[in-house]
Design a protein around this nucleic acid. Structure first.
Lengths: 215, 215
DNA sequence: TAGATTGTTAATCGATTAACAATC
DNA sequence: TAGATTGTTAATCGATTAACAATC
């Protein structure tokens, strides 16, 4: 309920809390202290309490946190108590893989449409959703009140397509294209740069080999 | 050449520098100052110089940085001057999509094998590589000197499979399973938790809606 | 040499951890 | 009430930015 800006460092940790609390809940655990949770998640109890207190007091002195309550509060913070309609732009391997991923649906992300410029892909189906040509993009977004676009096209066309999406009312882009999008204030972008991630892994392998050789 | 530990914050920025330098290089740009690069990338010039100086001096006073040289130096730091053999464990949609992604090959990551426990998938082919049954995993790793395993199986089996991989000499895991792996010291793990990323996007959408309503 | 720009030290900012008073 | 554990303030740590001397 606070108006103070929450740092992205805190936000980045919320999905992980959410995951652990969901698992505890499934195991029937009713309450947990910051200390117990800290041991489970390998973070400090202090950080857990600080993080939660950014959003108001979810715990109770002498008791700890109610797992089910906290789970639902974090869901609310993350906006998972609402549904979000999304489309996928780019019906290549990655786009189709994401369309087939059922867990998104379970969290309220609704797969509404998929688009590709390749005529060979148009008409094929991804989890019961028919691939449409790019020409139908604008109309579809308006008619189906689409909030999120998943961008799984090569970097070459990504910026132009992102602009088209935003001009037609898309509010957030989950960007898998290997390019930085600079979009108007208020349009949310979350980048998944897979090759960057792989390079980090490569760095760590390389560094570790060197350390080992140096003793 | 320094022995001082480089922070992960710095490492995370290297692939992005590498990408921009590659593009500048392709455009035929010969040299660039930290100031020019900072404007292009929307970071501070100070940060750029600090970052590079973690690895030694790549620039020259009064001149700036030679684009081609810097590009190759960063490639070396990231271990991209060597090849890395990888296998994919889990031949579902995501596993197959990653197997088909040609850009990894271009950076020296060699797609050597793919495995699945589902007999229906065994024998099918992904970019010319035949899906093998899980029973052949151990032998394959040893015979082909595999360094990296890409884990694209459901979370249920992920921990057990990760242990199997590590016990057979895998040195790094690119983990797409939605679970935290705790592996021995020296085994590198890079997590790609797609649903966490999507939840962050959802948070930012939700937050922005609230801000707008509050004026 | 004069101008430009790095490499590096110092200052600032923000995030994490520690400590403890508040309170269930 | 006594014990436990939060919520929150204060202390520490680390990362980012600013400033400038070194030097090409």
């Amino acid at each position: 309920m606070e108006d103070k800006e929450i740092s992205q460092a805190v936000i980045s940790r919320l999905p992980r809390y959410f995951r652990y609390l969901g698992e505890l809940r499934d195991e029937g655990v009713e309450r947990i202290s910051s200390q117990e949770l800290s041991e489970l998640m390998h973070v400090t109890a202090s950080q857990i309490r600080q993080d939660f207190n950014n959003f108001g007091g979810f715990g109770q002195q002498g008791y700890g946190y109610n797992v089910d309550y906290l789970y639902h509060e974090i869901a609310k913070i993350l906006g998972l108590n609402q549904t979000h309609s999304f489309i996928i732009v780019g019906a290549g391997n990655l786009g189709r893989a994401l369309g087939n991923y059922l867990n998104f649906e379970r969290r309220g992300f609704l797969f509404k449409g998929i688009f590709d410029e390749n005529p060979d892909l148009v008409g094929t189906s991804v989890r019961g959703v028919c691939v449409k040509p790019m020409e139908e993009l604008e109309q579809f977004i308006h008619e189906n009140d689409i909030e999120i676009a998943v961008l799984t096209i090569p970097k070459t066309g990504a910026i132009a397509v992102a602009d088209r999406l935003v001009n037609n009312g898309i509010r957030a882009i989950w960007n898998f294209a290997h390019v930085d999008l600079s979009l108007p204030e208020g349009i949310q972008v979350e980048n998944v740069h897979l090759s960057d991630s792989l390079m980090k892994l490569s760095y760590n392998i390389t560094k570790f080999s060197k350390e080992k050789n140096q003793g």
